[in-house]
Design a protein around this nucleic acid. Sequence first.
DNA 1: TCTGGGGTCCTAGGACCC
DNA 2: TCTGGGGTCCTAGGACCC
Length: 412
Amino acid sequence: MTGATILHADLDAFYASVEQLLNPELRGKPIAVGGGVVLAASYEAKAFGVRGGMSGWDAKALCPELIFTGGHFEEYQRLGDAAMAVLDDFTPLVERISIDEAFADVAGCEHLFGTPEVIAQTIRRRVRAELGLPISIGVARTKHLAKIGSQVAKPDNLVVIDPARELEFLHDLPVSLMWGVGPVTEGKLEDEGILTIGQLAEKKVEWVQGLLGRATGEKLSQLAWNRDPRPIVTNQRARSAGAQSALGRKPFAEKIWRPTLRHLADRIASRLRAKSWFGHTVTVRVRFRDMRAVTRSMTIDSPLAATVSLAEIAEELVKVVRVDHPDEQTITLLAISVAQLERDPLVQMELPLGLVDEGLRLGSRRGGQRLGADKAMDRVREKFGREAIAYGGLDGEQRVPDAFRGLAEKPL
DNA sequence: TCTGGGGTCCTAGGACCC
DNA sequence: TCTGGGGTCCTAGGACCC
């Protein structure tokens, strides 16, 4: 059996820890990053039951002395990058999952840096000493078990799972710790009397598949026996790019959705252009007052990256939603997503010239001009900042600053 | 003062092709 | 003429993750 060489490193209560690092007066106190919604809660706040994703209102009710803070977006990005860069000093096999989390495989590094446990201790010590942040690490033979290890280790600790005792460790834990088990799946399992990973492992794959679907059932059954074949993957690329905006409650009217779609299209399309990506499939999502959401999508032959082209398709799709739901008077969210991404088709494709011409024609000269204008705008923004130019007619109140939005973006 | 923003993957039905 | 089966793509919805 191979050894436990996979590390999962996860910064603790990340945004909240950064705020406490920057402002010593916040240390030891219950704080929440965010406003309308809690994005991160300090451990002092978690002791009151405050959790990420909770509304600020509910959080305050649980913890009256809760302090709302945040907004140091550049610092989150810088410190997250710096912490994950520590992993790079030990191995090139690092898979970044998010701003505050990564896997690493240290197989073959032992003669240089010591056992995986020693490496994990060194990483934790360095992140604490050099950056002032707590980080928890799980060490195991598989990614799934390493991730569970880091969750169990929190806050600010290390858990190493001996390959000889994997199932002993795993089977007493609640199913909710498994990757892929959310509230719905947890509820279905609970209805069947399955509370622990061990109880799930006793069930036949076919039975679990009947309950949860073919793929989910297969996956969870495998994970319950710690059969996790996923390797570390470096340099993952995004398969889609999107943006959304929660609106509060707004009338489902063109004067509301048109400027919002322009802004969303601008955000997405400029990100695509920055990496020379084009997309074939456009999806819009409209959420109504009762939080039900519908989507409409369209796949086009010649891929797009121009803001106006994307906005126009999005507008057509929202009009379809309007027609399909004539009784809905209020919307609470609009979103656009672009998928089926490919590199600049005219650069990448080895096509006979006639077909390239065809592609240009289908993209239309108008489309070409749009792209040219967009790229000029991109250059001005690069020089003078994003706010230097915007499409007209927009940007009243914004509930979430754009700088914060950028944090969640996956590199394209 | 209810409920952010950015993603991935899966399912199921229908169209279409062979 | 009728029937059928597999494969692929598109669309809509939903669960989940950070």
